[in-house]
Simulated assay, not measured.
Amino acid sequence: MNKHQLYYQILNFAMIVSSALMIWKGLIVATGIESPIMVVLSGSMETAFHRGDLLFLTNFWKDPIRAGEIVIFKVEGRDIPIVNRVIKVHEKDNGNVKFLTKGDNSEVYDRGLYKEGQNWLEKKDVVGRARRFLPYIGMVTIIMNDYLKFKYAFLAIMGEHVTLKCES
């Protein structure tokens, strides 16, 4: 491989990475949320969503939270956000809103998932609201996290592909 081919490959890779970052930043601005795409990791929301579904999220603060809406929330002491349905909403005259969630496939409310002593969620706990989804597309992410050998094999194949493409 000569210098021109190497420079071309480097520039091509940089263009792909920068395009992906621009698309990601555009999604952040358009949806009002730091992470506009999420993979469902558990079966608590079956039949609405299944493990591995890819969710597209928004979170516009002026939109009121309503019963029946599917929210993604994060509670103190848990690293991974939780996807569940709002089942009860309490609105006070001062504008304060508290709500309770439950997975469609769960038998009990989510109070056991909230931080100790917390009985209700507030708007500040919501990191997103499910708007659209693609079924099972996120299984690739789950497989790569659950099976490290698959992840390393995939990376090795991709590396070999890039190397062989550069040589040709």
Score class of each variant (00 low, 15 high):
11 L>P: 02
41 L>V: 14
51 R>P: 14
81 P>Y: 02
13 F>S: 11
52 G>Q: 09
36 P>Y: 12
72 I>P: 01
8 Y>I: 06
3 K>D: 14
141 T>Y: 14
134 L>P: 08
67 A>Q: 12
123 K>A: 13
131 R>N: 11
2 N>Y: 09
17 V>G: 08
106 S>Y: 07
94 N>T: 09
136 Y>G: 01
50 H>V: 02
18 S>E: 10
120 W>G: 00
95 G>S: 12
78 R>I: 10
133 F>E: 08
115 K>M: 14
132 R>G: 08
74 K>F: 04
133 F>N: 00
41 L>A: 09
15 M>L: 15
6 L>R: 08
95 G>H: 04
156 A>S: 14
47 T>W: 05
96 N>D: 08
100 L>S: 05
151 K>G: 03
25 K>Y: 10
140 V>H: 09
37 I>Q: 04
16 I>H: 11
91 E>H: 07
106 S>D: 10
164 L>H: 02
42 S>M: 02
19 S>P: 05
42 S>L: 04
98 K>P: 00
160 E>D: 05
52 G>S: 11
12 N>R: 14
122 E>P: 02
51 R>G: 13
35 S>R: 09
164 L>D: 02
92 K>A: 13
104 D>I: 10
126 V>K: 01
44 S>A: 12
167 E>A: 09
138 G>W: 01
27 L>P: 00
31 T>F: 03
32 G>T: 07
136 Y>H: 14
28 I>Q: 12
12 N>Y: 07
59 N>E: 06
128 G>D: 11
59 N>M: 01
40 V>R: 00
62 K>A: 09
6 L>W: 12
144 M>N: 14
60 F>R: 09
115 K>P: 15
18 S>P: 00
74 K>D: 04
123 K>E: 12
8 Y>G: 13
3 K>Q: 11
145 N>M: 14
164 L>M: 10
151 K>P: 03
120 W>Q: 02
29 V>D: 04
154 F>G: 11
122 E>F: 01
84 N>T: 05
120 W>H: 03
166 C>T: 14
17 V>M: 12
88 K>W: 09
85 R>C: 06
117 G>R: 08
66 R>E: 15
43 G>V: 01
4 H>M: 09
102 K>C: 07
164 L>V: 03
71 V>E: 03
135 P>Y: 11
72 I>T: 02
87 I>Q: 10
23 I>Y: 04
23 I>S: 07
133 F>D: 03
16 I>V: 15
144 M>D: 13
128 G>C: 15
7 Y>R: 10
69 E>C: 02
123 K>N: 10
159 G>P: 02
23 I>P: 04
6 L>N: 07
146 D>H: 11
61 W>S: 05
158 M>Q: 11
62 K>C: 05
115 K>E: 15
147 Y>D: 12
5 Q>A: 10
119 N>P: 01
22 M>H: 03
44 S>P: 15
164 L>Y: 03
88 K>P: 00
94 N>Q: 10
144 M>R: 06
14 A>T: 13
68 G>L: 13
2 N>P: 07
134 L>I: 15
112 G>Y: 09
46 E>V: 11
135 P>K: 11
150 F>D: 12
35 S>H: 08
